[in-house]
Each structure stands twice: as C-alpha cells, then as structure tokens.
Design a protein around this nucleic acid. Sequence first.
DNA 1: TAGATTGTTAATCGATTAACAATC
DNA 2: TAGATTGTTAATCGATTAACAATC
Lengths: 211, 211
Amino acid sequence: MQEKNISMSVIRRLPRYYRFLEELLKEGMEKISSRELSERMRLTASQIRQDLNCFGGFGQQGYGYNIAELHAEIGSILHLNGDRRVIIVGAGNLGRAVSSHLDFKRFGFKLIGIFDRDPAVVGEKIAGHIVRDAKTLREFCAEYSPKMAILCIPREFAGDTVKVLSESGISAFWNFSHYDILGDYPNATVENVHLNDSLMALSYEMEQKGC
Amino acid sequence: MQEKNISMSVIRRLPRYYRFLEELLKEGMEKISSRELSERMRLTASQIRQDLNCFGGFGQQGYGYNIAELHAEIGSILHLNGDRRVIIVGAGNLGRAVSSHLDFKRFGFKLIGIFDRDPAVVGEKIAGHIVRDAKTLREFCAEYSPKMAILCIPREFAGDTVKVLSESGISAFWNFSHYDILGDYPNATVENVHLNDSLMALSYEMEQKGC
DNA sequence: TAGATTGTTAATCGATTAACAATC
DNA sequence: TAGATTGTTAATCGATTAACAATC
C-alpha cells in the first residue's frame, strides 16, 4: 500500500497533520472527521482524505478517523520511532539553538556530537556535549558512523564540509547554512532550511499587504 | 507591470535567485543567460524566464541578464531596502540565535527590542539589546510601533501573544513557535517556520532513501 | 435501516515545461 | 547580417477540489 511515488506536497503536510492530531489527543478527543479536521487546519476535507489514502485507509465510513490510531500511523510513516545518530557541525548561535531547542529523540534522532573549528569554542559544553574539534570529524564518523549532519556553519565552509562528511559516510544533511546543497550527492538526503529566504519572502508579503 | 497575482511558488524562488546572483556578483561575472543560471540552480531556463517576466523584462535578447541589475531589481521587488521595526518575543535559545545570527538590516528590517517573560532573563543583554519584560509589550508597541514580531516562544503562549501583539498594531509575524497562526487575523502577514516539520519531512526522506 | 463519512474516481485548476517568434 | 537569447504563447503535467458510490 505504502511507499510508491508520494508527492512532496503530501509529505510536507504529514508533519502538520501529526502536530494537529497530537493537540487533539491532548484535548482528549477520540475521533474526528475529515470535515472537522479540515476546518481546524484550514484546508479541504477532500485533501485530507486524499493525502491519507496515499498510505492506506485509516478511517472508517460513517465514523471518521480514530485520532490516536491515525497519529501513530503518521508517526510511523514519518519513521519517528528510529534512533538515527546525528551530529551538529558549527557551535555558533544557531548550532547552540538547534542543539538545545529541538527534541531530537521525539523525532527518532539521537544527538551524539557537536563540532566547531574555533579553538575558543572547542571543549565548551553545549546541551550535554563537549564541543569537539572539527578536524576530528573524519575519525569520529569512522568510529561512530552518524547518519545525519546538521550544518550550522558559514556559507564559505559549507561546500567543503559536505564533501568531507559525505566521504565519511554521512548521507543526510539538515542544512542551515546559506548555501544550497544541490544534486552533487545523489545518494544524500538533503533538507535546506533557508531562514534568510523565509525572511525575504515575508518582506515581500508585507509590502504586498501594505504593512 | 508588477503587483498582480504573483503565485507563491514564484515568490518563494525569488530569494534564491537573489542569493545566487549575489554569488555571481562576488565571482565578478557581469552577465548570465537563463540557460547558464538554470544549470547552476538546477531548474529550467524556461522557469527562470517565466518567473522574472512576472515582474518585467529584465533581460535582453541575444545577451542575457545583467547580473548587478537583476540582483538590484529582485532586491527591490522583495523590498529589502526598507527599515521596518522588528521585535523578538522569547529570549530562549532560539530567540538568541535569531537575534544574533540574522542580518536584519540587509533585508530591510531593524531589530528594536527583545522580550521575555522570565524575570531571570529580563535585563540580560543580547545582540546589543537589553531584554525587556514581556509584560511591557503593549506599552512598548504603543510607543515605538514595531511592524513585525518574531515569535520564539513555546507553543502554549503563542495564541495569546499573537492576540496581544495584533491588538498592539503588529501586522506581521515570523513565527518559530510550534503553533500555526491561521487566518484569524486577515490583515496580518504570517510566515510560519516549523523546524520540527522540516525535521520530520527529512526523517521520511531518509527512510525512503534507505538511510 | 437511515445517516454519516470514508475511499476513490473524475473534473478543475494551477504550475511547469516546451516551443518559437521577436529582437538585440 | 547571423547568432544568441529573451519574452510570451501553447502544451503538458501534476496537484487540488468536487462528486459520489461504497460501507460502516
């Protein structure tokens, strides 16, 4: 039932469903219809049903969807039950925020190391981890084989860092640097988070709305 | 020429064009064709021309696009030359990172205040600003009328905070809280940044690619 | 059973790509 | 002028919405 050619648009909505269902659970609700969920989430009931049916029939005619069940199903589709090892590269403001702010465990990740190239930062303790020297990345990866790297480094180092990490067996990048990791590593999974782009888009919108 | 019904898909690509053009400028290039730019950015030349022509004919047949000129044009479309006053609400890890990491000025914004509700944090200095008590938000807004608020607060306070800020005349929100600001404020411009969602989408992708 | 609501197919809408005439 | 490349229209593709038969 699963796995085949699900479009990115659908995937990107799954975490949002997951979030809303979690809230409904907290509210103590048991079931919900696509119509009611659509009103809360401000999208169409049709879209919800269409989206969910990419992965299977989780609802029941005449009843709706069981919230706990659907929540668990989506969590499983998103593979939030894993324990993939993760490192953060770059212990500046952003690296610190990401390491402390995010609950990796909840999403199936496990932070195992933080790196920086600045000797003044190396040795500091952040989110329970001693910051390691970025020079030791290769050997660290060889020993602990992390699966994913979170890049919180300046643009100018990003290209080289991706190369090193890629060679060291890391196949997924959550990229916060102002640099685009493009298709040069066909086996890598990449999620570019461009905060600057987001701010610029907001700037445009504000202008349009006359703010 | 401008202003009419430009789709979100186009808008979201503009900052990326802007970034790439900036790089080309730094490389000292003078002009570029849609074909060459498309190869660098990994999209189609057709799309680039289509996108740019939403705003005007910036190119020249047989020549291509003048990089400096196009860069300036896009900057102007995105309204990066403004000086909109901005406040940050929430001086935790994320608030600190956002306040220090981002170059607001470069994108037409000006940070004028940081707020937190925790007395232990109030009074601290972050990115050149003394953290103010969140209780004073209303009066601060009345006096300095910021246009935008960056929300770096926990989910449970987000709804109320948006309400207060909205009543205080703030019409744009860059929302990092794990909460969706939906259409309840029709005049507000909202950009939701859901890092958790981004991480979950990445999790899915990793699973698909067999990481 | 009757009412409700799903799963799923068909219709619509919008975004991307292809093609080519205009023009530098 | 000939070659290159844009601006723009037309064709294709994909995503969203509407409709309704299936079924709980």
